[in-house]
Structures are given as structure tokens and as C-alpha cells.
Amino acid sequence: MAMEALAPYGKWVLIAVAVLYFVYLFVLKKKVFEVAVGVALSGIMAALVAVATMLIQVPTPLTRGYINVGDSMVMLVAVLFGPTIGAFAGGFGSAMADLITGYAHWAPFTLVIKGVEGFVVGYLTSKKDDFTTILLATILGGALMVLGYFFVEVYFYGWGGAIAEVPGNTLQAVTGIIVGGGVGHVIKRRVKDMLVSLQI
């Protein structure tokens, strides 16, 4: 099948995306982390993502992972503060939760997958922040998260393990769309001017 033919290239795709992720944050956007507000927002939002991820955890023994509600905070942060803070908080905050709670084997993949999710949602909603755009951005971000974990799980655990994780990951995505996107839209409408100045 096509997936099996692509499987040997999975690690190289992950490495390429990881390199792009780090280049974006620490080369193209390095000035964000040279400014006090950028450092403070990045750290605080990453911590909030980690706490939200650890708040509710449902273990999935087949792939030694867990279902959580961290995507709600990843999407909320991305909607409110844009792609750079969204990418940093989504990736590092989620990976930190994996490390703290004993799922260190997932941390490198989470770093990249949730980082990409935060970037995509933040980028699209920083261009246009009406309800439809936020909805579509969070749907796309959630879909990329589900697909990202699916590809990694196919590579490591086969089709059975990957398919078993889809409902849980989809639930995480839907929760993120409703809570993160919905709350983000409401907050952004009320304090839009202040948030625009913080999108760095």
C-alpha cells in the first residue's frame, strides 16, 4: 500500500519538519525571544499548554500514549497570540507535558506535531480573525495533529495501533476547535487591539 511504501521516509519527513520548525523559531523569529514580552509570553503560554495537557490524561496502552485536552490551549494561544507564540507554546508546552508525565518517548514527535498545529492556527488567524477563518484554521490545525500522530503511529505500531488512536486524537481536535477556537474568537472580539500588539 502507499502508506507502507512511504514508511521508510517517515523519519526523514519528521526530521525535515523539525528542522524547519527550529529554523522558523530560532533563526527567522529569533528577535521575538530577544524581547522581554516575547520571552515572557512564550514561557507563560508554554506552561499553560503543559498544565492543560496534564490536567486530564486517558492512557492508550496500545501505543503507550494518552488522550488529553491540551489542544484546546494550543489553539487558544495560537488564535490569541499568533504563529510564533502558538508554535513555541504548542510544541514546547506539549512536549514538556510528555516529559513530566512519563511519556518522554512521545516528546520529540509532540514537539513537532503540536508546534506545527500552533503555527498553522496562529498564522491563519493572524491574517483574518472572523469566526469562519478561526473555525477553518482550527479544523486544519486539528486535522494536521491527527494526521501527524497517525503517520508516526503507523510507522511505529502498524495500522492497528494507528487506527485505534484516531478516535481519541479526533476527540482532542474537536475539543480544541470548540474550546480553543470558540473562546479565542470571543476574547479576540473583546480585546482585539491589545492582542494585535502582542502578536509577535
Rank of each mutant, 00 (worst) to 15 (best):
M1V: 14
M3I: 13
E4H: 09
G10L: 13
K31S: 15
V32N: 00
E34Q: 13
V37W: 10
G38P: 03
G38E: 11
G38C: 02
I44A: 07
I44N: 06
M45A: 10
A46C: 06
V49D: 13
V49W: 13
L55F: 15
Q57D: 09
Q57I: 10
P59M: 11
P59R: 06
L62F: 11
T63G: 12
Y66C: 01
N68C: 02
V69S: 07
G70Q: 01
D71C: 08
M73Q: 12
M73D: 07
M75P: 13
M75H: 08
A78L: 00
T84I: 11
F92Q: 06
G93R: 07
I100Q: 00
G102P: 03
Y103P: 04
H105D: 11
A107K: 07
A107Q: 03
P108L: 02
P108D: 06
F109Y: 15
F109W: 09
T110V: 12
V112M: 03
K114Q: 05
G115R: 05
G115H: 02
G115V: 04
F119I: 01
V120N: 03
V121P: 04
Y123N: 12
K127R: 15
D129H: 13
T132E: 11
T133N: 11
T138L: 01
L144K: 03
V146F: 08
G148R: 07
F151E: 01
V152K: 14
E153M: 13
Y157L: 12
Y157K: 08
G160P: 08
N169P: 13
L171F: 13
I177C: 09
I177T: 07
I178L: 14
V179F: 05
G180V: 05
V186Y: 11
I187T: 00
R190L: 12
R190Q: 14
K192F: 09
S197R: 14
